[in-house]
Simulated scan of single mutants.
Amino acid sequence: MNAQAMIFQAQSEDDRLWMLRKQLNHDVTGQALFHGHVAYNEFAKKMSCQVYPGHLYWKQERELGPGVTLRIHGLTSTLLSARNGANDRRGSLYLSPLQTIDPSPNVVNLTICHHPPDWLIDGDDVEDMLNERAMFQVFGHKHRQRIHETTTYVRWSAGSVNPSHAEKQFEPSYNIIELNVAGEGTERRIDVASHLYRYQPQPEGFQPIRKNDGQEVFRHWIPFPSEETSGVKTGGIVQTVTRETCKAQATASASYTDAEASMGDARTRHLVDRFWDLDSSDRREIALELGLISDGEIDLPEPHRYGVALIRASERGLLGRLEQLIDARER
């Protein structure tokens, strides 16, 4: 409660960010900020979606189409949630600039965040950042099913499949989102098909929400031209330079984040799942043998301890050796 209060009561954005860093960097208060996430982390660890100090949000990648990667970001809007044991109020939560989206060539960013921007202290800054860098945005919390389509991004506000009967408007709903790459070169685009379903009691079942013209699918597309390249001759050698070169500073941490994001492939996801199925002693022995955790990290909560270890394995090119050690213990 004290850690949350120190962050919330900061008088300016700079002070709030400084205080958040200070609390996260302290062994005790950093862990305290995630006490409310224990059950979530236990659920999420097998999917490498856990959060902890130093890792406020997660990333994973999927191949979306030829030459295009979909990078999914799970943002954490709940660091200040349930402050003082009270219900959250609009504008009382905090994402912070520590959770940001790095632009990368031929990468489509999709963000998932429980609270929409209007529930955040820094909501205006978050909205500007996401609208500029995240082509697809999914929010929850309000249980009001909405879709907002623009020329550069699409935002879905999710309903609830199983809302409380105590809600003023009991309206179970869900969305199915289809993303596909179409076209090539300068004509390349991302096609979006949004299927919105809402429960109705008579006849009972989920029925599609229709557009004004009667169509059952909300179809949209966003231009996503291939990155242009040009040859630059330097010292007799022709080098390829992309427009993304100017963004190099923004992606200075790519060695860390890309290693994490790349763990979203099917084989690595299966490897992570097998790792978590081992006995606790086996997990500890493997992590220590590969030098993936230090003695000072032994007492961290397991989702934190081995979340760090698995990302380090990816960073250091040790996933193959990790698989060998898992094989040996499974036998």
Rank of each mutant, 00 (worst) to 15 (best):
I176S: 08
E228K: 15
E228M: 12
R331P: 15
E61G: 05
E171T: 13
A3V: 00
K45M: 12
G291S: 09
E167V: 12
P97R: 07
V138K: 14
K168G: 14
L179M: 03
G231C: 09
A287Q: 04
G264W: 00
S262L: 01
A10H: 01
L110V: 08
R189Q: 08
R243S: 14
L56D: 04
G54R: 02
D14Q: 12
H141V: 01
V68W: 05
D14Y: 06
D15L: 11
S281K: 15
F206S: 00
P201A: 02
L292G: 06
Q137W: 07
A287H: 05
P225S: 10
I177G: 15
S160A: 13
M135L: 07
N87S: 14
E323K: 11
I176E: 09
Q23V: 06
R144N: 13
A44C: 03
E260D: 02
M6S: 07
Q145V: 06
R274E: 03
L95D: 02
A44F: 03
Y57I: 03
L33E: 05
V108I: 06
A182L: 04
A259Y: 00
D122K: 06
I190D: 07
C49I: 05
R321K: 11
D279M: 01
A5S: 10
Q145L: 09
R267P: 15
E323L: 03
R62L: 08
A248T: 13
K59T: 08
A261M: 00
V161M: 10
S194E: 05
P225A: 04
Q137D: 09
I293G: 08
L310E: 08
L70F: 10
H165N: 15
F43S: 15
V68C: 14
R188W: 05
S262C: 08
G91F: 11
L95S: 02
S48Q: 13
D258Y: 09
E61R: 12
G320R: 02
S314R: 00
V308R: 14
D125H: 10
S255I: 00
E260M: 04
W156S: 14
N2P: 10
A254W: 03
R189K: 12
E227C: 13
A248Q: 12
Q200N: 04
N180P: 12
R316N: 07
G214M: 01
Q60I: 08
D279R: 04
I121C: 08
R89N: 11
S226W: 09
E244C: 10
T242H: 06
E216Y: 02
L24R: 04
L64P: 11
N2A: 12
M135P: 03
E149P: 13
E132M: 09
Q239P: 14
R312Y: 02
H220V: 01
Q60R: 11
N87T: 06
R243I: 05
E315P: 13
I298N: 09
L98S: 12
L24T: 03
E171K: 15
L179K: 04
N84L: 06
V28L: 05
T229W: 14
P103I: 01
A39W: 03
T150R: 11
N87M: 05
G74L: 01
Y153H: 15
R146E: 13
